[in-house]
Design a protein around this nucleic acid. Structure first.
Length: 425
RNA sequence: GGAGGGGUGGCCGAGUGGCUUAAGGCGCACGCUUGGAAAGCGUGUGUACGCAAGUACCGUGAGUUCGAAUCUCACCCUCUCCGCCA
């Protein structure tokens, strides 16, 4: 959420930046008129309340005085009764207007950063860097669903029986690989990169979803629990960013860096027919997330480091990838700047997103009331929040199935994972 | 699911209708004091909107009243016990 006053004073800028994302700007026009109405009504009702407060004090004093004073109080009361009724009416109108204004403000996207390329969709994303090379095969590499089904470690048919389309049943080597990758990522981020591991709830309430920006606009992307104010998390970003909702931190605590494994649940509404094969686009997938709370001064640098932390997972696994800077049209609603890491998938002859690293500046912090007190300063400020996948575990698994497949149909284990496959019992 | 106790500022805690602009304490900041510190003394100490005056905020929402932290109703959270349960 942008600051109310900022929008009011920078209407043209907000309109322009919203248009860059390819999002209609009519809510900004409506904002301008509703905002003016609100200010007018606010000053009217506040003046009335001021009169009421003063009269109240006077009545209290008169009631303690002489009989004459008491009579005077009795004359004042009917007058104030009328004023009170008027206040009640105006307060109701004001409430309606404020709710409408709040809806509008919550539906205005964050401003994209100035170094974000302008563009329409993912075609316009700009390559930022690459790492490693495409591996050479002495045979034609196959897509992971063929490798996995032939080995009997991926079972999409039975998953469909259990739950429907876009679910997977992992068996044996695949399930163990999924678990090993999760542990490997968490170990790397906690032991080498200085993140604290947390394991949050997988169901959160609507206030949490609103703070990080999934609600109110993107309810159709979420799985909701019937008769409860609870949703399945689409990413650990939601519970982890909300850890400090409505709290004020000390500057000395910052930056705070959390990593969390969670399953993620997405309805994938609007993606019917896309990526229907294999593990690419599932209703449920595992992810290790990185979340940072920083000061405004350091968030840009922290994004670069967050990206590097995520990249190192692929480097250690020996998987070739490229990093793209998302263009304005492909940028998420709450983000000002996002790097996507795309891993090479030889079985499909393409790059696929495996991580998305974003800086939200104070957009989420304002929605969630996440503040910090700068050293030696009285007034608190909003923190900056960042997050990124480190990495999507399911997609890492399929990248290994495709990149480490052997001619005989088996799959090799990356060296760095061998400790996780040692026999212990 | 049942019974009961709670929710007040960064923290503890007083406050059952009107000088409450929320007592008092702790913590914190600054000053005095000191060789330095502790102790002591003094001053200050939330958030949002607003140029300001001011308005709002005592879990949330509605209500009663000229006036609500205080009374009424609903809900949420939390603690203790019972039941059930991995």
């Amino acid at each position: 959420m942008l600051e109310l006053r900022f929008i009011r004073e920078n209407l043209d800028l907000v309109r322009e930046k919203t248009a860059h994302r390819g999002i209609p700007t009519d809510m900004i026009d409506e904002f301008a008129s509703v905002d003016q109405k609100r200010l007018k009504l606010l000053s009217e009702v506040e003046n009335l309340k001021n009169k009421r407060n003063l009269a109240s004090k006077e009545i209290a004093m008169l009631k303690k005085g002489s009989d004459d004073d008491k009579n005077q109080a009795d004359e004042l009361i009917p007058e104030m009764r009328k004023a009170s009724e008027r206040i009640k009416e105006l307060d109701k109108d004001l409430g309606d207007i404020q709710r409408r204004l709040q809806d509008l403000v919550l539906s205005i996207p964050n401003l994209c950063n100035d170094d974000v390329p302008k563009g329409k969709d993912d075609e316009d994303n700009v390559e930022f860097k690459t790492w490693g090379d495409k591996p050479n095969f002495s045979f034609t590499p196959r897509p992971h669903w063929e490798v996995g089904e032939d080995l009997g470690i991926l079972d999409f048919e039975r998953a469909a029986k259990l739950s429907g389309a876009r679910f997977a049943l992992l068996k044996g080597f695949a399930s163990k690989m999924e678990r090993s990758l999760t542990n490997f990522m968490l170990d790397l981020h906690t032991q080498k990169h200085g993140y604290e591991e947390v394991l949050p709830p997988f169901l959160v309430n609507s206030a949490s979803m609103t703070a990080t920006g999934q609600l109110p606009k993107f309810a159709e992307d979420l799985f909701a629990i019937k008769d409860w104010d609870l949703y399945l998390i689409p990413t650990a970003e939601v519970p982890v960013t909300n850890i400090f909702r409505d709290e004020t931190l000390d500057e000395a605590q910052l930056p705070i860096k959390f990593t969390a494994y969670t399953p993620c649940f997405r309805s994938e509404a609007g993606s019917y027919g896309r990526d229907t094969k294999g593990l690419i686009r599932q209703h449920q997938f595992d992810k290790v997330e990185l979340v940072k709370f920083t000061t405004p001064e350091t968030s840009a640098q922290e994004l670069e480091e967050l990206l590097a932390d995520a990249e190192e997972v692929l480097q250690l696994l020996g998987l070739h990838y490229r990093v793209v800077t998302l263009c304005s049209g492909d940028l998420g609603f709450s983000s000002t700047k996002t790097y996507d890491i795309e891993v090479w998938l030889p079985g499909q002859n393409t790059y696929r997103e495996i991580s998305s690293c974003s800086n939200f500046l104070d957009f989420q912090a304002r929605r969630g009331g996440i503040r910090y007190r700068p050293a030696g300063v009285k007034k608190s400020k909003l923190v900056h929040t960042l997050n990124g996948s480190g990495l999507a575990v399911g997609r890492t698994l399929l990248a290994i199935l495709e990149n480490y497949q052997q001619e005989d149909g088996s799959v090799a284990i990356p060296d760095v994972l061998s400790p996780y496959f040692e026999k212990r019992f």
